[in-house]
Design a protein around this nucleic acid. Structure first.
Length: 364
DNA sequence: GACGTGACGGTTGAG
DNA sequence: TACTCAACCGTCACG
């Protein structure tokens, strides 16, 4: 159901019940907190409930991510056909094997890692329901006559493990364990530190690599619209659900007025098309409904004067061979697309863009 | 007054 | 296709 409305909280701020705050607001909360502003003041300034401010800051401190967790969906299966097959093999090789021994072997053999290894009880259930039939004619698979076939589980191998996903940081891709994210807490962002964390945004590099921009060529690395990015689809790209949730949150929430926060102030004025200057969240300037504030923002066409190609060229020209140059070139292209296509993470990219410009100025 | 926390009503998406 | 379920959300009220 598409939200074209919102509710007003006690502070006069507008929110959509059940939906996350826009990334820009989340980012602003963290920014203000890092500037030493008290949560109660942040709450009043942004007109977000203090409970929400507290929650976002707590999450940020815990995970390094400003993103909301993954909304909806189910946990990915850990008892994949491959795991079941191995369990069966272990059981066949040693009928007296204990479930906990199977679990250890799954880990030792690299079939699973500590994040997706089935629990002992799950293994016991598998042994009882699926593999116990091996020695008990009449079982569900073989009917006691044939070797146990693989069940035709509706299992999508792309959804095999929640992390590391394509959006995970490079470090996470090297290791199956991206960081101090609790194994069972699938609702937390799948990557840590998050690509959308302030630290990572400030670190810049990770995000570009995650998006594949480093290896991208102009016009071919990614579709022009974020919706067309393969990673945005949960089915094909499950680890990005948190990102998708945030994306959708931003789609449904109009972006805040540029005067609202330093998020806006990071951005060159030209980067905000007038049509995008919704005012929603109350700030010192107050709440200004821009027509219908809950109308989906949609996508804006060009009209942005930032030209990523120029930026990229300048950087590539000025700093050939310098470490990080490729990242900056690719990032500038990426940023250009982000702004031109006005996708939902724009405010994060506003910050990113200004940081880039700052870096460029230093390089020049 | 500031802040942490749980209840609540809501949304979401895989199964 | 409709439904269920379990994850998440932000607000509110309480201590």
């Amino acid at each position: 159901m598409e939200h074209t409305y919102g509710e007003v909280n006690q502070l006069g701020g507008v929110f959509v019940n059940g939906r996350p705050l826009p990334n820009a607001i989340r980012l602003r909360i963290v920014e203000l907190a890092q500037l030493g502003i008290r949560p109660c003041d942040i709450s009043r300034q942004l007109r977000v409930s203090h409970g929400c401010v507290s929650k976002i800051l707590a999450r940020y401190n815990e995970t390094g991510s400003i993103l909301p967790g993954a909304i909806g969906g189910s946990k990915p299966r850990v008892t994949t056909p491959n795991v079941v097959k191995h369990i069966r093999d272990y059981k066949q090789g040693d009928p007296g094997i204990f479930a906990w021994e199977i679990r250890d072997r799954l880990l030792a053999d690299g079939v699973c890692d500590k994040y997706n290894v089935p629990s002992v009880s799950s293994i016991s259930r598998i042994l009882r329901n699926k593999i116990g039939s091996l020695s008990q004619p009449g079982g569900p698979y073989d009917g006691g006559k044939q070797p146990t076939p693989q069940p035709a589980l509706p299992y999508n191998p792309l959804y095999q493990y929640p992390y590391p996903g394509p959006m995970a940081p490079p470090a996470a891709k090297m290791s199956a364990h991206p960081g101090p994210v609790p194994a069972a807490h699938v609702g937390l962002p799948r990557s840590w530190p998050s690509a959308h964390s302030v630290t990572n945004i400030l670190g810049i590099r990770t995000f570009v690599e995650q998006t594949g921009a480093l290896g991208g060529t102009e016009g071919s690395a990614y579709p022009p619209k974020m919706e067309d990015w393969p990673g945005v689809n949960r089915t094909a790209f499950p680890s990005s659900q948190a990102d998708k949730a945030a994306v959708e949150g931003d789609i449904k929430y109009p972006q805040p007025a540029p005067g609202l926060s330093s998020v806006g102030s990071f951005l060159p004025a030209c980067a905000y098309p007038p049509g995008n200057q919704h005012g929603v969240y109350g700030a010192p300037g107050g709440y200004i409904p821009p027509g219908h504030p809950w109308q989906p923002q949609g996508h804006h066409g060009p009209g942005v004067t930032v030209h990523g190609g120029d930026l990229a060229s300048a950087m590539a020209f000025k700093q050939p061979g310098r470490e990080g140059e490729r990242g900056f070139v690719a990032m500038s292209k990426f940023f250009y697309r982000a702004v031109v296509n006005d996708f939902s993470e724009k405010n994060a990219f506003n910050l990113l863009g200004n940081l880039m410009l700052d870096r460029v100025n230093k390089l020049i």
